[in-house]
Design a protein around this nucleic acid. Structure first.
Length: 426
DNA sequence: TCTGGGGTCCTAGGACCC
DNA sequence: TCTGGGGTCCTAGGACCC
């Protein structure tokens, strides 16, 4: 019995979600766009083959889009979140230890006989695909870092059919494979570390593994980089994080779909994001002890005057009451606002969480008031959950919302809205 | 015209206390 | 009047992830 990690990663997740519910999109080049329909966040295989990179602004792709008849879609997070939940639920039923790592990835930890590893991975893959329609790739290794690397290989090299195992390779074979992995493709090694390592002549995962000066490594890449190095030697340092972990902070922010320069419009947008963030926070049963408001101009317009700023505000009483959060955010915004700029973005961060309902209060009267407010918020959340997210709104969020982001190509919420269920024509 | 959004963790340095 | 060092907490900034 030995400990192995499986990294299960959905293939082209957002594009795949769209293709499941719209068969006309299958086997076609599909791009899913970021908010405001700005740049590429997901691609179907056909688009990857065209060499289109993640993050490319869509206006740079006009010619390719026409030439190859690429389908463009706005991102539809309600759909992706629901599909993710289905995938993770299926995996959880098949695994003792699971860490949901991102919307489309999960680590699974297992103690097993080496000869059963591949069969188990095959079972995971088959059942997820059958239950959800989403195809996955699985990488296996004695550490999370190696499982990540194995997953890359499973995805890239078709002959492995979506499953690649590094847990049973000999040390010599492992080094041979690590030689083919570029330093920038290692989990935990970002652009800064890549630059530094390359300047030292370290270009592949094998080079890093055999780098001798551990002291220097620790000094430059810090403790996490050192863990990465040890994980390449099959020593597990980064543990599985199981269970539902509440967020430590919650951010809501968007770029505007049009020019915004009045305080009034900024307030409306801020109130809307504060509402979203507060609702999310109550979903994890937290109350905020702090909030940050930030705003800024469009950094790509180099000829326009630029302004970025943010401010932290601590709340004497942690609160989950949306009107209080909006009010505090407005006070903060008034300090930050400068007239005469074209603003591109505003946002709010909630943090310093305390469990909802346990918030300390100094006066009995305050306590009673807080209980009433919690009940009110529960009712609002439940109504919005059942009847659509904007059934009950705050007047501060505005009615017209000219600043709202552009999403001209959004698919229906097939799985989360009764009005938008897919209909099968007989 | 058009360039995403939402997170976590680590560390250095300052403030403060004893 | 002189003189010290250790510990903790907080915060801002950096780096990284999907």
């Amino acid at each position: 019995m030995k400990q192995v990690f499986f990294l299960v990663d959905c293939n082209n997740f957002y594009a795949a979600c769209e293709q499941i519910f719209n068969p006309g999109l299958r086997n076609k080049p599909v791009i899913v766009l970021s908010n405001n329909d700005g740049c590429v966040v997901a691609r179907s295989n056909q688009v990857k083959e065209l060499g289109i990179k993640l993050g490319t602004p869509v206006f740079k792709l006009e010619h390719l889009i026409k030439r190859f008849n690429i389908e463009l879609l706005s991102s539809n997070y309600a759909l992706y979140a629901d599909m993710s939940r289905r995938v993770m639920k299926t995996l959880s039923a098949l695994a003792d230890e699971i860490e949901v790592y991102s919307i489309d990835e999960a680590f699974i930890g297992l103690k097993t006989d080496p000869d059963k590893v591949l069969a188990y991975a095959g079972k995971l893959k088959k059942i997820v695909e059958r239950n959800t329609g989403i195809s996955v790739s699985i990488g296996i290794g004695q550490t999370k870092t190696l499982a990540k690397i194995a997953n890359k290989i499973a995805k890239k090299q078709a002959r492995w059919q979506g499953i690649f195992d590094l847990s049973q390779t000999s040390n010599m074979e492992l080094d041979k494979i690590l030689r083919t992995i570029k330093i920038a493709d290692i989990w935990g090694i970002g652009p800064k570390s890549t630059d530094w390592l390359c300047s030292k002549g370290i270009k592949t995962a094998k080079d890093l593994k055999h780098f001798k000066d551990q002291g220097l490594l620790k000094k430059k890449l810090k403790i996490n980089g050192f863990f990465t190095w040890r994980e390449l030697w099959r020593e597990s340092c980064i543990k599985l994080q199981q269970g539902l972990v509440g967020k430590k902070q919650i951010v809501a922010s968007r770029s505007f779909g049009k020019k915004v320069n009045t305080l009034k419009e900024l307030e409306q947008a801020l109130a809307s994001y504060a509402t979203t963030a507060a609702q999310k926070m109550r979903g994890q049963k937290s109350a905020a002890g702090m909030l940050i408001v930030f705003l800024g101009t469009n950094r790509f317009k180099v000829k326009e005057p630029q302004y970025f700023n943010s401010m932290v505000k601590f709340l004497q009483q942690p609160t989950a009451y949306t009107p209080k959060i909006i009010k505090t955010a407005f006070e903060t915004l008034r300090y930050l606002y400068r007239p005469g700029y074209n603003y591109k973005k505003i946002g709010i961060v909630l943090g310093n969480f305390q469990p909802l309902g346990l918030a300390q209060t100094d006066l009995f009267g305050q306590f009673k008031k807080a209980a009433g407010r919690n009940r009110l918020m529960q009712v609002v959340d439940r109504i919005n959950q059942q009847w659509g997210s904007s059934t009950l709104r705050y007047a501060a969020c505005g009615i017209e919302k000219a600043w709202q982001m552009k999403q001209l190509r959004k698919s229906p919420r097939y799985t989360t809205s009764w009005e938008e269920l897919p209909v099968v024509k007989a």
